[in-house]
């Protein structure tokens, strides 16, 4: 039997399906339904851009997929693995959200790059300082000493720091919620290129919400959240 959620989901000729999450139903703070029975599927090696009017529920959708907001009844599948509610922490470590406001932890810039690697779910992932330096260099943060308090970084610097950390973490699925806001066009272009490169690697996929349509020009696939439904655009 085909569930209603599956019928509504986007059915494009799939490459290798990497991640599947749904059915998802989201509401805003006032209880208005933003989207209903939406299932998100991401294919390996592709950058998917999620579009939609402001207030259409893009952030809520990303947060539900990331497992940071309750998604009752949703099933989560990564590769061949089906993950239940008890597996949410490992799920998050593999389907990682790059949050919109680019928060930082109290402490130094170095700590903010390194902390995920000390978590229990980090497994055998190790912090690669050499790669970190080279990424920081490419996003224009080479000049900032690593012992500086992360809280003193500007908004744009925080977004770049968050992107570098996410790339170092290198999760199978990266969900990026407006990762380039507050960046100069030049820097945003470089960051966008890094995100594209990450998406096209084997065993990886990226879903991004971008405020500037130009940055998503080279996306492999575009989805649109509109009127409570997720459609190819």
């Amino acid at each position: 039997m085909v569930a209603p959620a599956a019928r509504r989901s986007v059915t494009l000729p799939l490459m290798t399906l990497l991640m599947r999450c749904g059915p998802l139903t989201g509401q805003n703070g006032e209880g208005r339904v933003l989207f209903e029975n939406v299932t998100l599927e991401l294919e390996e090696g592709r950058l998917t851009v999620l579009e939609g009017a402001s207030g259409s529920g893009k952030t809520t959708l990303l947060r539900q997929v990331a497992g940071l907001e309750p998604a009752p009844g949703a099933r989560r599948r990564l590769g061949e693995r089906e993950l239940g509610l008890a597996d949410l922490p490992p799920w998050r470590s593999m389907v990682t959200l790059l949050a919109q406001d680019a928060p930082v932890l109290p402490g130094t810039l170095r700590w903010n790059l390194e902390f995920p690697f000390g978590l229990r779910n980090a497994g055998d992932r190790r912090f690669d300082e050499h790669r970190a330096r080279s990424l920081m260099d490419s996003v224009g943060l080479a000049g900032i000493p690593w012992d500086r308090e992360a809280a003193s970084l500007s908004g744009g610097e925080r977004h770049r720091l968050a992107l570098v950390r996410a790339l170092l973490w290198d999760p199978p699925v990266l969900l990026a919620d407006e990762p380039f806001s507050g960046l100069d066009p030049d820097i945003a272009g470089i960051c966008s290129e890094l995100l594209h490169r990450q998406a096209r690697r084997a065993g990886r996929a990226v879903l991004a919400v971008l405020h500037d349509p130009a940055l998503g020009a080279g996306a492999d696939r575009k989805l649109r959240l509109d009127g409570g439904r997720l459609e190819a655009s």
Partner: peptide, 9 residues
Amino acid sequence: ELLLAFGAA
């Protein structure tokens, strides 16, 4: 939530 997003228990 930043910690959670990277898989923190």
